[in-house]
Simulated scan of single mutants.
Amino acid sequence: MSPRRTRYAAVTAVALAVLFAAGAVTVASAEREEGPRAPASASADAGFARDMSVHHQQAVEMSFIVRDRTTDPAVRRLAYDIANTQANQRGMMLGWLDLWDLPKVESGTAPMTWMGMPVTGAEDGALMPGMATDTQLEALRKASGKEAEVLYLRLMTAHHRGGVHMAQGCVDRCSVAVERDLARGMVDAQESEMALMADMLRERGATA
């Protein structure tokens, strides 16, 4: 190889090395900014995914109950939207736990531990803030018409308040960017739905 070609090859190798090194630094920096790829089981990311999945499941259950207890199109439409949205979000969160190779239920860890406020004594089945009790769910199953509509709107308003509190906790504590984005979207959507439900309650001569 001629001296000129040798010098060219050497310069090219150095340039490529610099580019690869810069790329490695960029990737490492991005990983630090986005948070760990696989959060620890005791992290806020895992705790939120587990707890909000349970919280969402009850919202889906209540929405299916009221769908069969009223013929009011506005309430049925709201119930469908909530059930569809929260079922999809629940699937995403459970999928992340699978992706992170973490258990969906962590034995020995109370709900809300990741927020520093563990719930150690669930009242009548209400495991987390805003969740309806078993007694309230049974009352919803037995109600019909306007009574069922008002009860559903009240229970779901309380449910959303608790959900917003938990979602904001993830916004403040979670390290995985896509999970924080989901939590932030939950806050916005559920606050909007609470305003809608307040209007629907007033139309029925009731309050939250």
Rank of each mutant, 00 (worst) to 15 (best):
A40H: 13
F64G: 15
D72H: 08
I82P: 01
V105T: 14
Q89V: 10
P39K: 04
Y80D: 15
M62Q: 06
M93N: 04
A49R: 01
D51G: 03
Q57C: 01
G95Y: 00
D81R: 12
D51Y: 02
W100F: 13
D68S: 04
T109V: 13
D98K: 10
R76V: 09
Q58T: 01
K104Y: 07
I65Q: 08
Y80R: 15
V105H: 15
G35I: 00
G35N: 06
V66K: 03
A79I: 06
G91E: 04
D81A: 13
A59S: 15
A83M: 07
R90D: 12
L78R: 14
D45R: 06
A40M: 07
A40G: 10
G91F: 10
T85R: 14
S41K: 05
L78I: 03
R76Q: 08
A87W: 13
V54H: 12
R69N: 14
P103M: 11
I82D: 01
E33N: 07
I82L: 10
T85S: 14
S41Y: 03
P73G: 07
P36T: 03
L99R: 15
R90F: 01
A46R: 03
V60A: 15
M93E: 06
E61T: 08
L78S: 13
A49D: 02
G35S: 06
M93R: 05
D72F: 00
P73W: 05
T113D: 14
Q89H: 12
G47L: 00
E34P: 00
N88Q: 13
D81V: 12
S107C: 00
L97H: 11
P111A: 05
T85G: 14
W96M: 09
I65D: 09
P39I: 03
A110D: 09
D45Q: 04
T113E: 12
P73Q: 07
T71Y: 12
L78P: 06
Q86R: 10
R50H: 04
M52W: 00
T113F: 05
E61I: 03
G95T: 11
T85H: 11
I65T: 12
I82V: 15
K104F: 05
D81I: 04
A74I: 05
S107K: 08
Y80H: 15
Q57G: 08
D45M: 01
T70G: 11
V105L: 13
R77C: 04
M62R: 06
E61M: 08
D101T: 00
R77N: 15
D98I: 01
R37G: 15
G35E: 03
S107E: 14
E106R: 10
P73T: 11
S53A: 14
T109A: 05
D45P: 06
R76L: 02
L94E: 11
P36H: 11
I65Y: 06
A83H: 08
R77P: 01
R69Y: 03
W96Y: 14
Y80E: 14
M62S: 05
Q57E: 15
G47I: 00
W96V: 01
E61N: 11
D81G: 10
V75T: 15
N88G: 15
L97K: 13
T70M: 09
V60W: 06
Q58L: 04
A59T: 09
T70P: 08
A59E: 09
E34D: 08
